[in-house]
Design a protein around this nucleic acid. Structure first.
Length: 438
DNA sequence: CTGGGGAGGGGGCCC
DNA sequence: GGGGCCCCCTCCCCA
């Protein structure tokens, strides 16, 4: 006989012990803030802690201490609360950093829920947009539902409120009906709600001279910087609370006389232009016309890099960037001498290979560099091309398990190979060989 | 320290 | 919707 409430109560007790600092044998230091927890619980919840605690399990008499700089204490609070309660408090502001931290801590369930949260936000985004245009749904966000979103993955004994189920694998995984809706179309609402500025946003700032919103990003996503976090936090005047903003937003939604606010008032998109710009990024102020473009744009927030180079292992967020990288770095497609920049042909130049990198040199520069005497590696003369679909034996194939964010170090000193330039063949390769992207 | 060039990355848009 | 190209910008390395 199984008592279903036992697990829930057990976790509740553990959480209580944590709060009272009872039997806590692990200290987690996050940016100076100390969290106390139980090794057993952390071990069972996180692949990272499992590995960490396995290694330090011999010294059980000493409390284990783990230090993190990759995410903020607030983010770790969300994670730890989830570990001890099965409830994940996601909001539009924290979802990226929580997902990033979960990735760091190897908590696949949390990652999965975050992804669902993001995905669902897009759906909501689209629906809300439709509502915006029709202006027929006067109930939009008028129910006062908190915009933060609570995901429960575990033992919720209570009956579930009428929320939509997003992820069956997460147990009673729920999300507030109109959560995020306001993040999707009304940039003014994001100004104060979001805390950090992504590199993307910074760039937008510099390019378009519009003041964009920040996005909270984890510091372990290298190309995001949080340097403007403080700037955001100290932004003066005009600051309104989220609830105050919500009122403003609702006013904007419901009043046909109010124009579409974009940015901080400096850029106002006339309502007539709205139908052309349909998809609003939930994390920043970026608006695109096509859903596919938004999907692509979102990768700059999620850090997702689904396209690995099978030659060097470097990963890219976009197929065309991978393709460009492969042509430039591994195929020596440019008929330009790397040294003197002159145009070279198969007669006037040769391809030089350094590790996985290939480039062209004219005969003069080859002779000047004194590398014309190096033997020609016959194997390296095989055309360097994107492997065909299913070509698992390709020399450039990097198996799924071998994928790594760590760039493979090229050995340019010993593996220098020269081969004849054959422009026609390269061009043929370019046309015929398509990237092997999965 | 600075300027130039290569590579990566993001957006727009066409096919 | 995906693939791909073009354009532009930033970052980084190197001379």
């Amino acid at each position: 006989m199984e008592i279903s409430s036992h697990q829930f109560h057990l976790l509740q007790q553990l959480n209580e012990q944590r709060r009272q600092d009872l039997f806590c044998d692990c200290n987690i230091l996050v940016e100076g803030k100390v969290f106390k927890a139980h090794r057993n619980v952390l071990f069972a919840s996180s692949g990272y802690f499992k590995m960490l605690l396995s290694q330090s399990s011999k010294e059980t008499s000493q409390p284990t201490t783990a230090t993190f700089q990759a995410f903020s204490p607030d983010t770790f609070t969300v994670i730890l609360d989830f570990v001890y309660s099965g409830k994940l408090s996601l909001t539009g502001q924290n979802v990226i950093e929580v997902m990033s931290a979960a990735s760091y801590l190897q908590m696949t369930d949390v990652i999965s829920v975050c992804k669902t949260f993001i995905k669902s936000s897009l759906d909501i985004s689209e629906k809300e947009k439709d509502r915006y245009f029709s202006l027929s749904d006067k109930d939009v966000n008028s129910n006062g539902v908190d915009r933060s979103c609570l995901y429960g993955a575990g033992w919720r004994a209570e009956s579930s409120p009428p929320h939509s189920h997003l992820n069956p694998d997460q147990g009673t995984c729920m999300m507030g009906g109109s959560a995020w809706s306001n993040f999707n179309y009304y940039p003014t609402s994001q100004r104060n709600a979001q805390q950090q500025l992504s590199k993307h946003d910074q760039r937008q700032d510099s390019i378009k001279k519009t003041r964009h919103l920040g996005l909270q990003q984890s510091s372990d996503i290298p190309h995001y910087k949080s340097s403007k976090l403080e700037d955001r936090a100290s932004e003066p005047a005009g600051h309104v609370t989220q609830s105050e903003e919500q009122v403003q937003i609702e006013t904007e939604v419901e009043s046909p006389h109010v124009g579409y606010q974009y940015g901080q008032g400096s850029d106002v998109i006339p309502r007539n232009d709205l139908p052309r710009m349909r998809f609003k990024c939930p994390f920043c102020t970026h608006v695109v016309k096509r859903k596919a473009d938004l999907k692509r744009h979102l990768r700059c927030h999620t850090g997702e890099r689904p396209y690995p180079c099978e030659a060097c292992g470097k990963r890219f967020s976009r197929l065309d960037h991978l393709s460009s990288h492969f042509r430039t770095i591994h195929q020596a497609c440019k008929p330009i001498c790397r040294k003197c920049k002159r145009h070279v042909t198969e007669l006037t130049g040769q391809v030089v290979q350094e590790g996985t990198r290939r480039y062209r040199l004219c005969n003069e520069c080859l002779a000047e560099a004194g590398i014309d005497s190096i033997r020609i590696d016959l194997e390296a003369e095989a055309p360097l091309e994107f492997p065909q679909e299913g070509d698992k034996d390709s020399r450039w194939h990097y198996g799924e398990d071998n994928r790594s964010d760590v760039e493979i170090v090229e050995d340019g000193s010993t593996d220098l190979v020269i081969q004849q330039v054959d422009d026609s063949e390269d061009e043929a390769d370019e046309k015929e060989v398509k990237p092997n992207i999965r």
